[in-house]
């Protein structure tokens, strides 16, 4: 806390950069995961292969993946951004697919029988009913990304990781603790906020 008291601006800036990094990566990750998840919900061999591949990416140690990305993309924000997007895919795609797959067969059939086009079935019935599960995936991904994004400090991306790695290099435990606590608080804040959204959409979709 003493570090925070002494350098409030530095912590605030690092926190801001961290939030920006996570939200940007989350937005892009979701934009990619939504169509992939919809495709996976339709099943078949492509779906199995895709989820398998994303699962494999998920198992690569994060530090190793980041090292590979630095080798390919250089230092800075880009490698950690790409790593965050890649890691989030598995959870996001799986939850989109699970959410759509969990839609009651009678509701889907009724939608088709009422004369909805495939797109209308998706937009008016499947996605709204899948929303709680999809938001649940976003929540899990966001919390994991907050933690993972601290590694960005190691490769020169600004964020809370900068505090942690500078503290580590300069033997300033206060700075490490300040960065860690801020990251934890941020993760908890994301978790609570998205839990709220999850409850809201669950209520609306009556689950």
């Amino acid at each position: 806390m003493s570090y925070l008291a002494a350098h409030p601006l530095r912590v605030a800036l690092a926190l801001g950069a961290h939030v920006e990094l996570v939200l940007g990566a989350l937005a892009l990750a979701f934009a990619i995961a939504l169509p992939l998840g919809i495709r996976c919900a339709r099943g078949g061999r492509v779906a199995g292969l895709l989820l398998g591949a994303l699962g494999a990416v998920y198992t690569i140690p994060s530090l190793a993946l980041l090292a590979l990305l630095v080798a390919a993309l250089g230092l800075g924000t880009l490698p950690i951004f790409v790593a965050l997007v890649a890691y989030a895919q598995f959870v996001l795609v799986r939850n989109v697919a699970a959410g759509i797959g969990g839609v009651d067969a009678a509701e889907r059939e009724a939608a088709i029988a009422m004369g909805m086009t495939a797109r209308q079935v998706l937009a008016r019935v499947e996605l709204p009913l899948a929303l709680p599960v999809i938001v649940g995936g976003v929540r899990i991904a966001a919390v994991a990304m907050v933690a993972l994004a601290t590694l960005g400090g190691y490769v020169g991306a600004s964020g809370l990781g900068t505090l942690i790695f500078t503290g580590l290099a300069l033997h300033h435990p206060d700075e490490i603790i300040a960065g860690s606590i801020a990251a934890c608080a941020l993760a908890i804040a994301f978790d609570l906020a998205l839990r709220g959204v999850e409850r809201l959409v669950s209520y609306r979709s009556s689950r």
């Binding site: 009651d104 009678a106 059939e109 009724a110 029988a113 009422m114 909805m116 709204p128 009913l129 009556s206």
Partner: peptide, 28 residues
Amino acid sequence: IAMRRSIGYAIQATGLFSHMSVARNVAI
């Protein structure tokens, strides 16, 4: 698509859309 909109369909499991009100279900 057009043909199905001119044919009513009711089933045992109802298939009512659980995220919509009664009115919106009827209005589909």
